[in-house]
Design a protein around this nucleic acid. Structure first.
Lengths: 201, 201
DNA sequence: CACAAGATAGAACGATCGTTCTACTTCGAC
DNA sequence: GTCGAAGTAGAACGATCGTTCTATCTTGTG
């Protein structure tokens, strides 16, 4: 068969579509970005688009899949540093802060997507729900390993604080939100916070 | 002149349009709801719509104005109970929780709107920003009157926690979020929390 | 009553939405 | 070399987007 694929097995056109759409969906919203715009900026035609994705919604779900994979990779990286459990909690919190400050300055991709998809049974909302559940339980495991006082409640609070940081960072500016985030996150973890202000980067 | 107005001065058609649009915008998102749908459910024609609102965006801003007015009214009601300052903090936190549990089960109207309007200079985003600033300073005044340890930081944290509660209440379910919200909110205020929920620390 | 103005009605505008169509090219397997 | 499947190309589909049009009706004022 004739496959015009990249070394890792997926087509170059598909990768460009996904990268372009991810950027546009995040920066401008999903319903605001049409297929015309995506294929135009990806340097691809409509037919090519529909060869790779059955519909626009499949592309949206793939976009959320990319975001999900990125965050999982960040957790893996933090865990593979070999830091001991208590240290890892700090690494994770710093990593979340750094992510909001540098990459996710337009809010949370999942929260923003959910705002545009009211149907909880839709594929998009299901992707949002499963990502959030994974994220929460991952935090719970990290807190558990660190002997935090209440890993389950702590994880739930950390999710809340992270949600708030992304929203607040977008709407109010990260610099205004950072102090409240650092204080709240360490208190939510139930572990002693580092010295008052300095935030590791 | 021929004015078909209600006792309070605004036209009945305009009020129906605003009420219908507010409901639809909140429940289904803004870009997802077309003018056809709004005028249809409001029992009004397109021309009537454009007599009352120069464009759809003006209707969106009016919708945010309604939400803003509702929250201000809730604050006024809490303050007019004559509760003393420290008590008022508890009333406000309970009021916010009650609001998320009963009325705002689809997230925060302002956060959701901002997700669909990336341009920070747009009228919608300006309305969001000014509402948030009012909300934050209102909380700061309440905390200040109650002699909270750090009203400014406390208000910033309360905004964060409330944002998170609305997002979490929508995406994860209010019952799962409530314990974390109550604990975080009272700690953010810096005042003793009512011993009820399983509170850390 | 006559008149001007606000409110309503419903058709119609061009633009864009997501999607599908047919035609042409490029490759791997035989 | 031949065949067929995958990729590309660009026109075109009906539906809906936000908006504007002319015409009719209702109402307060002269």
């Amino acid at each position: 068969m004739a496959t015009r694929t990249t070394p890792n097995g997926t087509s170059a056109a598909r990768e460009r579509l996904l990268a372009t759409a991810s950027e546009l969906f995040y920066r401008e919203g999903i319903h605001s970005v049409g297929v015309d715009r995506i294929v135009g900026e990806a340097g691809v035609t409509r037919a090519t688009f529909y060869r790779h994705f059955p519909s626009k919604e499949d592309l949206v779900e793939a976009y959320l899949g990319v975001e999900d994979a990125n965050i999982r990779a960040a957790f893996d990286a933090a865990e593979s540093t070999g830091a001991e459990p208590r240290e890892l909690v700090g690494l994770v919190i710093d990593g979340l802060a750094d992510d909001v400050a540098r990459h996710h300055t337009r809010g949370c991709p999942f929260i923003n997507a959910a705002a545009e998809y009211p149907d909880a049974d839709s594929g998009v909302r299901r992707a949002v729900a499963s990502h959030r559940e994974w994220f929460r339980s991952e935090l719970e495991h990290v807190l558990e390993a660190a002997d935090a006082p209440d890993p389950r409640l702590g994880a739930a609070e950390l999710v809340l604080v992270r949600d708030a940081a992304m929203v607040g960072g977008y709407l109010d500016g990260w610099e205004r939100v950072r102090p409240a985030f650092v204080a709240s996150a360490h208190r939510a973890a139930g572990l002693p916070a580092p010295a008052a202000e300095p935030v590791v980067e």
